[in-house]
């Protein structure tokens, strides 16, 4: 479940990312009533097995069974809630009706990781964003030069060019990163959690800024939830 919008007196329009049918928008009737049988299952961050029938404009939800209930664990931690909001907004913007099993599995895994507090919230979010962009075809390079392919290490990062670049092709004034921050970004992309968690606060903060800039550049629109991310307890 990605997000919901209120509709009429007691209905909701829900947006889901499915395993094989891409993004689905459907009407869930009466789910805002306290007596609703599946209202709680159709909240963001829930993983459900849902059945629909085709409506004239939107499909109608007829049944929903929980497969993974991460909502209450995530909302119990405000930092996790803001991070999960960025994840579902990114998934909403990055996917379409065609479907991507990889994007689906990545999002479910990231939400589960947040709910179970497997890794620091901020790192989980940054890792999700880098991997989601990679699956979508915008994999950043943190080793070889993104322009010339020249072997690294390089320390100049340019979001517009797709990652780190050699000094000779870097536009003037491009920011130069600490080599440990570059290593952290590479660890987040590959899922090397032991190395990622060993990074200090300054490197994590710098990496988060880079990931945010890279994400917003490639999505070509701002993520509204990103400015509300709470990293105080991450």
């Amino acid at each position: 479940m990605l997000r919901t919008h209120k509709l009429g007196e007691a209905d909701r329009i829900i947006t889901l990312l499915s395993r094989s049918h891409g993004k689905i928008r459907a009407v869930a009737k009466g789910v805002r009533r306290t007596a609703s049988k599946f209202g709680s299952r159709l909240e963001p961050f829930m993983v459900v097995d849902a059945q629909f029938y085709e409506g004239r404009t939107l499909d109608i939800v007829t049944q929903a069974e929980s497969l993974g209930s991460y909502g209450s664990d995530i909302t119990g931690d405000y930092s996790a809630y803001t991070a999960a909001s960025v994840m579902v907004e990114t998934a909403d913007k990055i996917t379409d009706d065609d479907g991507s099993l990889q994007q689906y599995l990545l999002l479910v895994g990231a939400l589960r990781s947040l709910a179970r507090k497997e890794h620091p919230v901020s790192l989980t979010l940054d890792s999700y964003l880098l991997r989601a962009l990679s699956i979508a075809g915008w994999a950043p390079s943190f080793g070889d030069c993104a322009v010339t392919g020249e072997p690294g290490p390089h320390t100049v990062f340019v979001a517009q060019l797709g990652g780190v670049v050699a000094d000779r092709v870097a536009p003037p004034g491009s920011p130069r990163l600490d080599s440990r921050t570059i290593a952290l970004l590479a660890s987040l992309l590959s899922g090397d959690w032991a190395d990622a968690e060993a990074a200090d606060d300054r490197q994590q903060s710098q990496a988060s800024g880079i990931v945010a800039a890279y994400t917003q550049f490639h999505l070509e629109r701002s993520l509204r939830s990103l400015q509300h991310v709470d990293r105080t307890t991450a």
Partner: peptide
């Protein structure tokens, strides 16, 4: 209510 996805902090 706080809803980052709707831009409400």
């Amino acid at each position: 209510a706080i809803s980052p996805i709707d831009g409400v902090g």
